[in-house]
Each structure stands twice: as C-alpha cells, then as structure tokens.
Design a protein around this nucleic acid. Structure first.
Lengths: 364, 364
DNA sequence: GCTTGCTTCCAAAACGTTTTGGCTTAGAAT
DNA sequence: ATTCTAAGCCAAAACGTTTTGGAAGCAAGC
C-alpha cells in the first residue's frame, strides 16, 4: 500500500480536466508541435492552419498551463518581493503606494508578483529557495540598509534584482531611487533663503539609507551656505512614523528660536501640522513647514493647501520603474539605475523657484 | 531556421544547472523514486537509505523544482489575490494591515501569495486565467459589493475562494468578517446610553457591503431604543477616506444639536478629531467620539488616549484567517465562516460596559 | 518445500509544454 | 529529367517531479 506519512491530495478545480494542447491537436488532426508553434507566432505554420488553431483555441477555451511552460522554459515570469515580517516595519503606508505601481507594471508585462513575508534572520534562505526552486526570475528589494546582506547575497548568487534605493555598491545592481540628496539639499536651501535662522529636521529612521542620505544633504547645505550645523535641530523618527511626527514636533516647538520644520515624510508632516496648530502657531505665517511628499493617494492634502512646501515624487512611478528594471534584467541581463522625477510645490508666503528635480537614467 | 516572431530566451540564473533529483539518485546509486519517496516521508524506504538521502540532499543543496511539482501534482500551493486597479480604491491603508496577516499565515503554511491588479471590467478574465493556467489553487476576494460578480463567477467555476466580508450568498462560500452589525449596533446603544440625543455617523463608501451593514445596524439600534431616525445625521465618505473625515466632520459641527460623532474607520476618526479640535470643541468633554478601530499598526493612538471610544478588531487577524480558510478549502473542500473577535475600549467620561464581540465559527 | 506476507526498492508513465532536427511536397532552377 | 529551395508540417526528446504497480529478497507459518 505504501502510504505517505502525512499528505493528502486532490484536484484543485471542481470542474473536470482543463483543455490542453493535445485536445487542440486531436480536434484539428495536427501535431501538438504545430499547435504550439501556431500559438507562439512562429513562421513555419501555414496561415490557414494558424487561423484554425487560434480559432479552436478560443472556442475551446484553451489556456496554456503555466507550470508546464515554466518547467520547460526555465522561466517563471514571476518576480519575488519578500517583506520583512518585522512586525511594524513592513506595515508602512508608503509601501502600498509603491505596490500600486509594481502591480500595474507587472500586469502590463504579463509578470506575476509573488510575495511572502519572512523575519530578517531567515530572509536570505527565502531568497535562495525562491530562486533555486524556479518560483521567480528575479526580486525587488525594499528599504536597503548600509551593506545590506540581501544585496550581498543576491549579487553573488547572480540573480536578477532591483533595489528601491541605493547603497555603496549601486554600480553593480539595478536600482530605482528618488534624488534624496538633491531634494533635501534644495529644501534646506529654500528654508534658509526664506530667512529662517534655525529649523527642526524630523527625519526617518536612520537604519535605512534614505534617511542617512537626507541628513547628509541637510548638513551639506548648511555648510555650503555658511551656516552652523547648530542651525538645525535634528530629530530622528523611528518606524512607525506617525506617532513620531506629533511628539517630535511638540519637542521642537518648545524652542522658540525654531521657525521652520522640515519633515522626511508627508506622514510626519501632517502630524506635525496638527501639533503646530494645537500649539496655537499658524503654519505659513508663524512657521514654515517643508516636507518630502510621496504622493500617498489616500492622504488628501487639500485642507493643507498652502500651509506646506514640498518636493513631490511619485512612489507609484517608482514602483513601476522597479518592475520594469527587474524584468529588463531578466530578459537581457543588463542593469541600470533610474532616478524618478521630483517637482517642488511652494507653500503660501514662501519665496523661491519651483525647482524640478532631474530625471536621470544611469547605465543603459 | 524557423525563427520565432518575437521571443528571446535565456536561462534565469547566472550560475549553472540546479541540482535535481537525478543528481541525488546518481550520487547514491538508487532510483529517483527512492529519492522522491525518502524526501516525502513515505514508509517504504529503509531508514538507512532515507538518512543518506536527506544528508546528500542537504550537502548538495537540493531544492525540489516547484514547477515540476506543480505540473505533476496539479496543485500550485499558491493563492491569488487580485487587486482592483481602480486607481484610488485599492490604495487603502487598511489593505496593508490585512496583507500583513495574509503573508504571515501563508508563509506558515508554505503557500505563496501571487498578486496582480486589474481594472474591474477585466477582473473576471483574470480569475479565469489564473485558475485555468494552474497559477493558483484559490483566491482571496476583498471588499465585496452587493451581488459581487467576482463571487458569482467563482461560485460557479467551483474554485476555492474566501471573501473578506459577507453578502447574501455567504452560506455558499468561505468568509472572514468582523461583526459589523453587532459592533455598530452596540456603539449606537452606547452613544444613546450616554445621553446624546443627536449624533453624526460618518460611514464608509456604501458601494461596499460593510458600510451598508453598519448603516443598517445604527438605524436598527435607534428604532429598537425608541429614537427617531432623525437622531442621526448620516454622512457617507467615499474612498479615499481621509479627506472625507475632516470635511464631513466640519459639516456636522455646524449643527449644534450634534453632540457625538460615530466613525466607520479610525482613519476618518483621527481626521474628525482634528476638525473638532480646530473648531475649539474638546472631545471627551464637549463631544463624544466613537469609532471602529481596525488596529492600523502605523497609526499611533497614544495622543488620542481617552478622547475616543472604539471597538477594536484586528485586520491582521482577519488576514490570517483568510488564508487559513482558503487553504482549508483547497485541501479538503469544506467551507466555513469566521467572525474575528472585537473588543470595546471606552473613552474618558463614557459610561458603559466593555462588551466583547462574539467569536463565532460558522460551519465546520 | 511451498505459500504467505513484509520490507525495500525500482522502471515506467504521466503532467503539459517547448524545441530540435528532421521529413514531405511542390514548384523553380538547372 | 534531375536537383535545389522553401514552405509546411511532425516525432521525439526534454524539463523535474510524483505515483503506479509491481519485483526481489527474506522470514515465518504450514
């Protein structure tokens, strides 16, 4: 009898067998080769036959079995996106925005996105398994940290992947990023140009690179424009961000010398605005508020119109670019970096030009 | 030469061939049958052989090819989750919370989640294709509407699926839901019990069923407790929710008879609180604020402590239950519904008991 | 000695495709 | 008349597993 220890098996669909390439071949009295080649656009099948084939394929509701295709072609047409199961970290509203772009682009190119979450210690094993077992052709890597072990692993495994953000080795892999440095450099310049002598900078979690880069940009701008580093009160908000926005702003409000607020995320900024209002200060008149705006679709900035100056950059666009890049790699093994565009929107009473961030394409 | 019209092909991994079951068989001089059975826990392989097999499998870094397994077993061990590409609708922070639970549970059961987005008109075709081509074994269906065509389709296709929410046919499919009716009935009772004669109810978009059910519950409670339907000012916020929270609250604040606010989502509520504060009213003293709290991890309710009365229910738990249910169906074709638990948290100055919602398991 | 039963193994078929390396046939070129 | 070319088709191998239906060997029971 040879029973398995623990498995049980059953067909997945309630209805009977799906129609296969063999059924088509039988129906038309041609070989399965001809069916396959007709459907895949090869030139060695006669026009009449091809027409008959596609017609009956449609009529019988034929859909090629994806797993058979994957097995023989050794390509899954799927890309993997593994999330950190690190409780709060992964549940970030920014993430959904990126995902919207990722899904849309993937659909357009007929790729699937396969997702899992895994705690950081076991993540490498997950990447390894996914690529060994043929589940995916490449990966999206999110929120890179300095010397990110995931990147190290993927680089030496020689697997296609794209990183949302950059670290030291960014020459060697494909990436998509916003111009963190340029944007925060310019925002700082803008604040100073508007006559503010001291401001608070409420940054994101510095364990992620985007935050480090932004801090660097702010201090560089201060130095280049001849201001002391003391002109900024630097505050770091850890994930999840929202609580930090309110509390850190309250902290900064205690110092009267501070007349401007710079936020690393619009999420921090909206909370900050609440704190500012509650303290009886009015943004745009008493204080200047500047921020990075990632265009979170669910956040309506209407009520805040004019109260806030920001650099706008679409995370959704970044998401699309991510999968475009990783697919490009899967299909012809060349890597490139993409800087997503940024545009400035000035709040009321703020002087300056609406500098548009560069759109750059590194590599080819 | 027979060239294809448009394809190009390449191996996915840069490194050479992966190690297969044949390599193991060759290494150990046994048949591939034995390898397979040893690795899959069948009783008809000797203990010594089994040990040798698992040892060399580990040593050689063998990972079974997922696509071959899927092809022969006709099971993908993946479950599909198709998002509406309807621009704003899908980008809802609630979604991320559900997803955290979905991914965690899927990982635990060794299932993959494959996601796509598709505009509503073409969604049915996507479900059809996914199930025909063997990509997935079942589906998660989100945000059902009345007579949802997706449910109609999946029911008659006989495909395993689970719905987050319920509509008329909920006897016939697996679902996971929060007790929308009970919770909003109780919240209304609580508001009235605290002496409020008139309140605003800011609901979610009624094109989704959870919102309709909640409205029904509120009006039923009013009727049952002998109040006129006019005791509520009913406002419907469409997606995305956040803007609605602020604006609709402002609208309701204009009517002085209104002394309490009931929100369908904590997202609406936090915006509402901002509007209330800005209007110079203080929540917990001048007005009562009640809400459903879906435990969005990125939202910190600390600063609002005591200002708000809510029913708490974990969307993450719901997410886990969703995949547990759909996997159960895939593996033994029985369907059941699950009500996720809810618990009440009373705000300062609010009288009432902390009613705990029922935990129910319908079906088997 | 012969059957029976148990344990351990295995050859071969199957899953549904793609691709290779032909093989016909018909017409054009010699 | 023969050879060449091109167009249209196909048999068979391959992808990497799982599963079926035994077979071989050996001990126990009669």
């Amino acid at each position: 009898m040879n029973k398995p220890i623990q498995r049980s098996r059953k067909r997945s669909t309630a209805s009977g067998r799906n129609v296969t390439i063999k059924d088509l071949a039988a129906e038309l009295n041609v070989s399965i080769t001809t069916i396959s080649r007709a459907l895949n656009g090869y030139t060695d099948v006669g026009e009449k036959t091809r027409e008959k084939v596609v017609e009956t394929a449609r009529r019988l509701g034929y859909t090629p079995n994806r797993n058979a295709q994957r097995l023989v072609t050794q390509r899954s047409h799927s890309i993997g996106w593994v999330q950190s199961d690190d409780d709060n970290k992964f549940v970030d509203p920014h993430f959904v925005e990126v995902m919207a772009g990722v899904l849309r682009e993937a659909r357009k190119d007929h790729y699937d996105i396969v997702m899992t979450s895994e705690n950081p210690q076991r993540q490498l094993a997950t990447y390894e398994r996914y690529v060994h077992d043929g589940s995916v052709d490449g990966f999206i890597v999110d929120l890179p940290r300095p010397d990110d072990p995931r990147i190290t692993f993927l680089l030496e495994a020689g697997v296609p992947f794209v990183v949302h953000g950059r670290e030291a080795r960014s020459e060697r892999y494909g990436w998509v990023d916003v111009d963190n440095y340029g944007n925060f450099y310019n925002l700082t310049k803008l604040i100073l140009a508007n006559g503010h002598k001291r401001f608070a900078f409420i940054n994101g979690d510095e364990q992620f690179l985007y935050a480090t880069t932004r801090r660097q940009a702010v201090y560089d701008a201060l130095r280049d424009l001849g201001h002391s580093p003391d002109a900024v009160m630097y505050l770091e908000g850890t994930h999840p961000m929202v609580e930090a926005g309110y509390q850190l702003t309250e902290l900064a409000l205690a110092e009267p010398s501070i007349t401007a607020f710079l936020y690393s995320s619009i999420l921090l900024a909206t909370e900050g605005l609440a704190a500012i209002s509650r303290a009886g200060r009015v943004p745009g008149r008493d204080v200047m508020v500047a921020s990075m705006n990632d265009e979170l679709q669910y956040l309506n900035l209407g009520p805040l119109e004019g109260q806030i100056t920001y650099v706008r950059s679409s995370l959704r666009t970044a998401g699309s670019a991510l999968v475009a890049e990783v697919i490009r790699q899967c299909e012809r093994k060349q890597i490139s970096g993409t800087l997503v565009p940024s545009v400035f929107d000035l709040g009321d009473g703020v002087d300056g030009e609406s500098i548009a961030g560069d759109v750059e394409l590194v590599g080819a």
